[in-house]
């Protein structure tokens, strides 16, 4: 397990936990006690749990499909074309990438808030973890990574369905999957951070209150141009808007420099979320 490259010129005391090579840099940045470089074990745990309840995992795949059929095809019969990034486009093709982005968000937020809150507040899972060499950063990274893997599987499934129904018109769509992973990571990280502030299950209504309007109003079902100017500006600041812009650009092939802004938005969101979540977990559990 020990890694030769990590014993170069820095005579820093070697952490007791033999770090994995890839985690070496993070181990040097994060203060000792918060990170043991073993976040992957939390992912192993989540995988074991999921193999015991695969039905609940599978159900997450169908929700966006139902939306696609009901809106893309049902509503698509009435609304034939809509103004897309490159001009008028079929409604199903317009809605599908937005649903892809929304499902990445929903899956990540659900996993990160409900599951984290349950383990953190009721099952005391993390108290047991923190009695081992692992620290709060291992927990935050490990749980975020699992949200990412799960979200990634759903997204991949949805992209395959889009391909099957001819709703993808550009090879750029290959990048839709990594884009989904980034979006899922960002929402998971912020969701985790938010759930450390929650006092009881009642507070989860607030999560719904945040996620629902995002889902409905972030140009998911119609273009930004329907809003008055000031409201367009507001919508342009919200996260799901950026996710939808990114997905729509990739699946239609109209990719501009704006995509980099979308990406930057989620990188910042992910970093802030993980840092806040790790800090809060440490502060609340290590008292």
């Amino acid at each position: 397990m020990t890694n030769e490259t990590s014993t170069t010129d820095v005579p820093a005391p070697s952490p007791s936990a033999a770090p994995r090579g890839r985690a070496g840099l993070l181990l040097r940045i994060v203060p000792p006690g918060l990170y043991a470089g073993r976040a992957h074990v939390l992912v192993e745990r989540s995988y074991l749990v999921s193999t015991r309840g695969w039905m609940s995992v599978l159900s997450g795949f169908f929700e966006p499909l139902f939306f696609l059929f009901s809106l893309g095809y049902g509503l698509g019969q009435l609304v034939t074309t809509v103004a897309g990034p490159g001009g008028p486009m079929p409604y199903a093709e317009f809605v599908a990438p937005a649903l892809l982005a929304a499902s990445a968000m929903n899956g990540a937020v659900f996993e990160a808030t409900f599951n984290l809150f349950f383990k953190f507040k009721y099952a005391k899972t993390y108290d047991a973890v923190l009695a081992t060499p692992l620290g709060p950063v291992d927990i935050a990274l490990g749980e975020a990574a699992w949200c990412l893997i799960r979200g990634g599987l759903y997204s991949a499934g949805f992209i395959v369905v889009m391909l099957g129904f001819g709703l993808v018109s550009s090879p750029w769509a290959l990048l839709a999957l990594p884009a989904c992973l980034l979006v899922a990571l960002a929402f998971a990280a912020v969701g985790m951070a938010a759930s450390t502030f929650m006092r009881s299950w009642q507070d989860f209504d607030l999560v719904q209150l945040a996620v629902m309007p995002l889902f409905l109003f972030s140009t998911t079902f119609y273009p930004l141009s329907v809003y008055p100017g000031w409201l367009q500006t507001v919508v342009q600041w919200t996260p799901l808007y950026h996710a939808i812009e990114l997905m729509r650009a990739l699946t239609t092939g109209y990719v501009g420099w704006g995509a980099l802004v979308n990406v930057a938005y989620f990188v910042v969101m992910a970093v802030v979320g993980v840092v806040v979540a790790a800090r809060r977990l440490g502060k609340l559990l290590l008292t």
Partner: peptide, 12 residues
Amino acid sequence: VVPQQDNLDTEL
């Protein structure tokens, strides 16, 4: 460490 209240992993 054996804590005062069992914090076994009930999902496993």
